[in-house]
């Protein structure tokens, strides 16, 4: 720090720095952004949630339905199917938290692996963008029936392919088909925390 020049002041000499020291200092130290110590870990699903388990859905449009667990997707999401023919639940993703696993399991070894692979890709369930946007005119037009939502035929075919072997194994056991068809609900005096599933 000996930049600058020495100058003569009367009798004495003094070093005058080329760059003067700052008069002002910030009161606070500049804050450092916190280091993130969290990391994204793969979700750990309950041990009871093995593929083939019959689940009771607790939330959403199909709450109360008993469905078959097909596969774990990432981040605690489960892939389930009704089967559609029995209880109207299609291939669907559900949150593992909003599900009760029963102790009943069925064999899903015969499920078509290829379609299952296709269904479990991340963008299988994303909605397709509409080609034509609804105009204001159409919105105010009365009397005309809105177009009915059509199920893509590819989806229906996938559903059939997945459900086929499940249906055959369900048929083998008595009462199992009607069990899947009925919805679950609590009755008087039922204590879900004390019940065995």
């Amino acid at each position: 720090m000996s930049d600058g020049q020495t100058k003569q002041f009367g009798k004495g000499q003094r070093l005058v720095p080329a760059q003067k020291a700052q008069k002002w200092y910030p009161v606070d130290d500049e804050s450092q952004p916190k280091k993130v110590r969290k990391s994204i870990r793969p979700a750990k699903v309950r041990e009871t949630l093995q593929p083939g388990t019959i689940l009771i859905l607790l939330a959403g449009r199909f709450r109360g339905k008993r469905v078959v667990l097909l596969k774990h997707l990432d981040q605690g999401v489960l892939l389930v199917t009704g089967p559609f023919k029995i209880n109207g639940v299609p291939l669907r993703r559900v949150n593992a938290r909003y599900v009760i696993a029963t102790s009943k399991r069925i064999d899903i070894a015969g499920v078509d692996a290829k379609t299952l692979e296709k269904v479990s890709t991340p963008d299988y369930f994303t909605k397709e963008k509409k080609a034509e946007k609804k105009s204001e005119e159409a919105f105010f037009k009365q009397g005309e029936k809105p177009e009915k939502k059509k199920v893509a035929s590819a989806r229906a075919a996938d559903q059939k392919a997945v459900d086929q072997s499940i249906l055959s194994s369900v048929k083998k056991e008595e009462f199992l088909s009607s069990y899947l068809a009925t919805t679950f609900s609590l009755r008087n005096g039922d204590k879900p925390h004390e019940m065995k599933w």
């Binding site: 102790s103 009462f175 069990y179 065995k196 599933w197």
Partner: peptide, 14 residues
């Protein structure tokens, strides 16, 4: 009865 599973409860019902 208390230790029946969900499917067994359903079978009893039926």
């Amino acid at each position: 009865r208390k230790n029946l599973t969900d499917f067994e409860r359903f079978k009893v019902l039926r």
